[in-house]
Design a protein around this nucleic acid. Structure first.
Lengths: 221, 221
DNA sequence: ATGTCAATAAATATCGATATTTTGGTGAGG
DNA sequence: CCTCACCAAAATATCGATATTTATTGACAT
């Protein structure tokens, strides 16, 4: 089996392919939270062998998107309001820290990359949702990318992904009435570029918390 | 293959057995940092099949104790001074947070468990190192166990384990001249039980930072 | 000498089959 | 009518073998 990637040059392992697909399915809700993930069933869905599926599920465990039950297989991580609020709170704490460190270590490279990823995100706004999602994450991670602490950044990226999932769960409401999201991004960017840590952090956190309120509203338990 | 555990009653999966063994070997340095981990070689060492070994390595990846190189197998996570200091800093931030939340939510159950685990740790001081290590971790995790944020606790536990590794790396120096470690633990316990968050956190952090200084001294790069 | 390339050796990734374990249901006994 | 032990059926975990991929070596041309 030879898989060709975008550039038409390289190959991917079956495990990685399965990993990417399953991750996407869990994030978007194609595999509902809490659902039992049977190897056979997934093997069919992705048409690949059982070993790659098992390994992909193991990898997703690291991301806290899948839970392994010791002799009883895997299931998609459960989702509920308490978990959502935990993620939001942790995200605010850790991203605040990472952003402040990034600004403290600010240099031209970081600043330029910020401007660039923000530009890409603006252009992607017209494109389909998946493209914009990707650009949005890239911008937000670029904000934190100068913290000097790879682990901190990894934690933030993990929490970011877990949050995406809840955005898809409260699906319809990716429109936020009475809110100018692009303006919020501009403000964060502007404060970061000006190296105003307090303002950047305040804007970033309120950006997250606002979205959190909208989502909380459309969430049952 | 039927493995009987301590109690002589239950069984474990081969994967879990391999996971526990490999984790131990990496933490204690039996498998040196940065070393290539060949499946065949480990299969022999643990006398089990290749599948459990692969899966155990995948699981260890979640713990950041093993790195997976895409089509090129696994290796023990590298260790260096920068990484050590990153862990120490993150630990201080996250444990400070978790401890304060635990104290804010303090109740009788938590308090009693604290006293109990501290007692066990004191008794374990005479026993062999591995026993004490276990009790020491249990005590420290009990301090954080009331934070109300399972993920935060998970991050702390992960960082705790990563730190153990550096203690073994600077092996000989598990004696800390001019330091009364048991007294430090008493102070942390006392402050926590009295629900004095500021004092508890200060004592906890200085406990970690002191050890950090000793370890930093015996570390080359 | 030195760098490139092909052939070989080693290691990883994947498959298909088998052995264990869990689950859910059924009937005997209380 | 409920409880518990037991028996399929389903699912997971594990093995052994094979197909791919990466690393190494040595010959050959420059």
């Amino acid at each position: 089996m030879n898989m060709i990637d975008d550039t038409g040059v390289k190959e991917t392992s079956a495990t990685r392919t399965a990993y990417v697909s399953l991750r996407e399915m869990i994030l978007t809700g194609a595999l509902p939270a809490g659902q039992k993930l049977k190897i056979e069933q997934l093997r069919g869905l992705l048409n690949t062998g059982a070993s790659p599926v098992r390994e992909a599920l193991s990898l997703l465990t690291s991301d806290m998107l899948v839970e392994r039950i010791d002799q009883r297989g895997f299931r998609a991580a459960p989702a509920n309001k308490a978990n959502f609020e935990e993620i939001l709170a942790l995200r605010c704490t850790l991203e605040d820290l990472a952003l402040r460190q990034s600004i403290a270590n600010a240099d031209a490279d970081w600043e330029e990359r910020l401007v660039l990823t923000h530009h890409h995100m603006k252009k992607a706004a017209q494109q389909e949702a998946a493209i914009f999602e990707e650009a949005h994450k890239t911008f937000h991670m670029a904000l934190l990318a100068n913290s000097g602490s790879p682990m901190l950044e990894k934690f933030c990226a993990q929490l970011y992904d877990l949050n995406i999932r809840y955005r898809y769960l409260a699906a319809k409401s990716s429109i936020y009435p009475g809110r100018d999201v692009p303006a919020e991004h501009e403000e964060i960017l502007d404060a970061a570029v000006k190296r105003d840590a307090d303002r950047a952090s305040a804007k970033l956190l309120s950006h997250y918390r606002l979205t959190g309120e909208y989502l909380s509203r459309d969430m049952q338990n």
